[in-house]
Amino acid sequence: MRRFARRTALLVVAPAITLVAAAWLTARPGDPALYPPAPGDEAVEEAVEEAVIVRLVARAWHSGLLLPRDDLSRAAGKIGSGTLLEVTERFGAYPALEIGWGDAGFYRAVPTIDALDWRLALKALFTPGGRPAVLHVVGVAAEPGTAFPGAEIMTLPLSRAGFRRLATALGHAFTLRDGHPVEAGPGLYGPSLFYEAEGRFSLLNVCNHWSAGLLNEAGLPVTPLLDTLPQGLALDLAWRAPARAR
């Protein structure tokens, strides 16, 4: 019995140790010069500006970022991103934009967890070389809790410099044709559109990794292995950033 108990314990403990080691080895450090924001760390004309409030919206299988439209438009002007200027003008009637990235087929076909098709999910995750991706942009006028009932919302104050870094990476995520972002049809809910996107969706590069990558550009530390699921990403931010649930 003792020998059996030891073998059972080894079978449980060894994978756990392996996962912890893998998470530690693949963790990405943050940039203390960018996050957390500190008063006076910007240029003189921006020193009195408040931090930019960004929110992670984490649902059952997907996460996206809720970004203030005016701040995104201002950042686009500073970094010279015609792409983001065009997108923010397209949704000019809304104070915030929720932006997510994902598999072009799965994202459109599975608007909610109730619509989950495991065959489609497995195809999206395990297609060799990955699959084409899209961006989903939603104009949001309501408060986050009202706009996304049932979602876990993490509040993240970013420095202006960190937000510009995030905006730069976001601008590069749009596929361009003749210098313009390519619309790919109506979105899933509210005033929304799909856009063709750069990158390939796979098990090693899912929507939550994309959200984490943008936040890492803004200076936040992230742990890709933990961030595979939206609940893991929210936990990662609460643990390492830290973020606040709201």
Rank of each mutant, 00 (worst) to 15 (best):
E42Q: 11
V44R: 14
V48T: 14
E49R: 15
A51H: 09
I53W: 10
L56Q: 14
L56H: 07
S63A: 15
S63Q: 03
G64K: 02
L65H: 00
L67N: 10
P68I: 01
D70P: 01
S73G: 14
A76K: 05
G77D: 09
K78S: 10
G82V: 09
T83M: 02
L84Y: 03
V87K: 09
A93Y: 05
A93P: 00
Y94S: 13
L97E: 00
L97Y: 02
L97N: 04
L97V: 09
E98Y: 12
I99S: 01
G102T: 08
G102A: 08
A104I: 01
G105V: 11
Y107D: 00
Y107C: 04
R108A: 15
A109Q: 13
V110A: 11
A115K: 13
A115I: 00
R119P: 00
A121L: 14
K123F: 02
K123I: 00
A124R: 08
L125K: 03
F126E: 06
T127C: 11
G129C: 04
G130T: 06
G130F: 03
G130M: 06
R131Q: 13
P132K: 11
V134R: 12
L135Q: 00
H136F: 05
H136R: 10
V137D: 09
V138H: 11
V138L: 12
E143N: 03
P144D: 04
G145T: 08
P149E: 13
P149R: 11
A151N: 12
E152D: 11
E152K: 12
T155E: 15
L156R: 09
L158S: 04
S159G: 15
A161N: 09
F163Y: 13
L166D: 02
A169G: 14
A173F: 06
F174Q: 01
L176N: 08
L176E: 15
R177Q: 13
R177V: 01
A184S: 08
